[in-house]
Nucleic acid binder design. Structure first.
Length: 143
DNA sequence: ACCGGAAACT
DNA sequence: AGTTTCCGGT
């Protein structure tokens, strides 16, 4: 499990395709935690721009799950949970509401929105506003 | 489809 | 702590 994670990291480094800043992959707020978190996994898929299971939406930080069951299967594979489905994955997403990591875009099916400010705030308590945005990190632009 | 309580798991 | 599992309710 850990080996795979390290291999992926090496791949990222090797390809030079840094889609998100380091803190998006390795949260500083959970020191010693090697766990792959769901929001982390989602950013990874969105960063790859694979687009089959999940894509960015129209608004900043908004994403749309195009194939809920496929996304659930991918997540299940990552976590070693072969019986993962969208019902259970979406429960995990709902736990993010109180943590202010995500919220639901009401009325839009399978559509959620990242609270990047909260993510940034959690990782960097010293940064009250937006991070410095590099050209390759479009979705971290501040409105 | 979406919500959120409750209990269980790692 | 961050889910996973299950489920009754809207």
């Amino acid at each position: 499990e850990r080996e795979r994670e390290r291999e992926r990291e090496k791949e990222r480094e090797g390809s030079g395709a840094v889609l998100f800043p380091d803190w998006a992959y390795k949260p500083a707020w959970s020191p010693g935690s090697r766990q792959v978190h769901l929001w982390h996994f989602l950013l990874e898929l969105l960063g790859r721009g694979e687009g089959g299971a999940i894509t960015w939406g129209s608004e900043w930080g908004e994403f749309v799950i195009k194939d809920p069951e496929r996304l659930a299967k991918l997540w299940g594979e990552r976590k070693g949970k072969p019986h993962m489905n969208y019902d259970k994955l979406s429960r995990a997403l709902r736990y993010y509401y109180n943590k202010r990591i995500l919220h639901k875009t009401k009325g839009k099916r399978f559509t959620y929105k990242f609270n990047f400010n909260k993510l940034i705030l959690v990782n960097y308590p010293s940064l009250p506003t937006c991070p410095q945005v590099t050209s390759s990190v479009k979705h971290f632009n501040c409105v």
